[in-house]
């Protein structure tokens, strides 16, 4: 499903954020990327939807070399991925419902099917009934769940989340993780970056440990 081989990433004018990173994740896995702040977790995740491009090596997603993808092909790659961003990127001038509908605006579903999917996604994260609310009125955990609903509304086969439990109390964090586990159980491949070691110990089947941009362990399934 996801395969990195000898991937390096150097930001313009910066140090190398990733060096010689090679691993692969099979369909249906639930994997964590851990490491200290600045280790390169976010950079690794951003290579998958081609938000960043590798400086060397290749990144394959569903067999497609996304590092070499043409600019015009990138939107179609991203539509098939579920992305949960570190800063959530919710629209605070829109309702909860409109936030979930956003990815459906450029998918090819009719209005009825789109509405059905939006409600189903909100249902899965426990936000059904809050459609009309503004995201500002939601708690941190609820905002994170809204971000997950938006990511899964197009039913992606791969879900990528960057620090989805940052700034959340243990209970809210556990609830978020349960949602990811539930998606994984119905066959969605899940990749989560986190620096929270306790979460990894509780849920981690597969752990990729990054240190200073290098993969310290987890290159192959344990």
């Amino acid at each position: 499903m996801v395969s990195f081989s000898a991937v390096a990433k150097r930001y313009p004018g910066g140090e190398e954020a990733l060096r010689e990173v090679s691993f692969s994740i099979a369909a249906g896995e639930l994997a964590f990327v851990t490491g200290r702040s600045g280790a390169g977790k976010s950079t690794l995740l951003k290579l998958i939807p081609a938000i960043e491009r590798p400086s060397a090596g290749s990144v394959l997603v569903n067999g497609q070399n996304v590092g070499a993808l043409k600019r015009t092909a990138i939107p179609y790659l991203r539509r098939n991925l579920g992305l949960v961003f570190q800063d959530q990127k919710l629209l605070y001038d829109r309702s909860v419902y409109e936030n979930v509908m956003l990815p459906l605006a450029f998918s090819d579903h009719g209005p009825r099917e789109a509405a059905r999917r939006a409600r189903a996604a909100l249902d899965k994260v426990g936000l059904l009934g809050r459609e009309k609310a503004n995201p500002i009125q939601l708690s941190g955990g609820e905002q994170q769940r809204l971000a997950i609903a938006r990511a899964v509304v197009n039913r992606p086969s791969l879900l990528v989340a960057d620090e989805p439990t940052a700034n959340l109390d243990a209970e809210s964090a556990a609830r978020i993780l349960e949602i990811f586990v539930a998606f994984n159980q119905v066959g969605v491949t899940v990749l989560i970056a986190t620096h929270d070691q306790s979460l990894v110990e509780r849920y981690g089947e597969r752990v990729l440990r990054l240190a200073d941009g290098r993969l310290a362990s987890g290159a192959t399934p344990a």
Binding site: Y76, K89, R150
Partner: peptide, 16 residues
């Protein structure tokens, strides 16, 4: 600006 940025990140084409 924000809507445009998010839309791009989740797969909106330039044309859209």
């Amino acid at each position: 600006r924000e809507e445009i940025e998010v839309s791009r990140l989740i797969g909106a084409t330039d044309a859209f």
